[in-house]
Amino acid sequence: MKRKNHYAFVIDVARCIDCRACQVACSVENHVPMENTRIWVQDLGVQGEFPNLQHIFVPYNCMHCEHPPCTEVCVSGATYKDKDTGLVLVDQDACIGCGYCVDACPYNVRYLDKKRGVVDKCNACAQRLEVGLEPACVATCIGGSRLFGDLNDPVSKASVALQNARNIVRLDYEANGHDTDPNIYYINLPNMEQLNMPELFQPLVSQSGALPRAPKYTLSEQGWKHVAVPLLAAGIGASFLVQAIYFTKQLIEGEKEFEE
C-alpha cells in the first residue's frame, strides 16, 4: 500500500557547519522548553593527529522510521505513524507522558515535557508543512545541508539530492527483529571508507552509548507484556471455561431445579 507522501530528510553532511541555526529555529518554532531539544548536531569530534585532522558534524532528529519501535510501545496510540505522510507524530492530547516511547526510541530523540506532562519530539514542523512551508530547521539551514521532501515525488529537493548523492548512509537499526528503516538519509560523507558511522555516531549524552541503540523497554512495560498479559489471559480464559462448563451442563441436564 503506497502512502500519499513519503516524507524524508536528506542531510548533506559535507555542508553542515555546526552553526546550530536549525536547533534555535526548531526551539522557537515549536516552543521547545529550555531544558529540552528536538534536534541535534552531533559533533563526531576532531579525528586524526595534528595537523591531519577531520571534523564531521551529523545533524539528526526524529528519523520518522518506516518501522518505528516507539509507536509499538505506545499503549494509547498517542504516538503514531501518519497514514498519509509517514511522519511519526505524537498526539499530545492523547499522550500521558509515561515515557515508554522515550526508552524505546533507538535514536534518543524523544523527551518528556515536564511542564505539560507529555512526550514531544520532532514533528517535521507538520504545522508548517500544512501551509506549504519547509520545516523550520530546513528553511533556515545556512549551509543548505538540511533538505526535506517527498520521496514519492521524483523532483522534490530530497529526491533530487538522493539521485545526485556521492554516497548515501542511513543509521538503520537492524537487530533483535527490528528494522527501523529510518527516513533520514545522510549524503556526501567525506572519506566514507574511513568512517564507520554507527560506531562514530556518539549521542549527545555520552553515557548512554552509541546511536542507534537497542530499544529499551521499561520494567512496567516489560512486566505488563510478559507477566500480566499471560496471567490475565489465563485467568479470563479459566473463568470463561468455568462458565462454559456450567452452561453445557445446564443444557445437558436441563433446568431440573425449577420444575414444580
Binding site: 552553526c19 546550530r20 541555526a21 536547533q23 534555535v24 529555529a25 522557537v28 528553511a139 533556515t140 539551514c141 545556512i142
Partner: peptide, 19 residues
C-alpha cells in the same frame, strides 16, 4: 524567518538571527 527578498538572508537566518 529570513526574508527571501533580502540579499543577505535569502530566506535564512543563523542561530543568532533565529534567537
Amino acid at each position: 524567518e529570513g526574508n527571501p527578498e533580502h540579499p543577505h538572508s535569502r530566506g535564512r537566518l543563523c542561530a543568532r538571527g533565529q534567537s
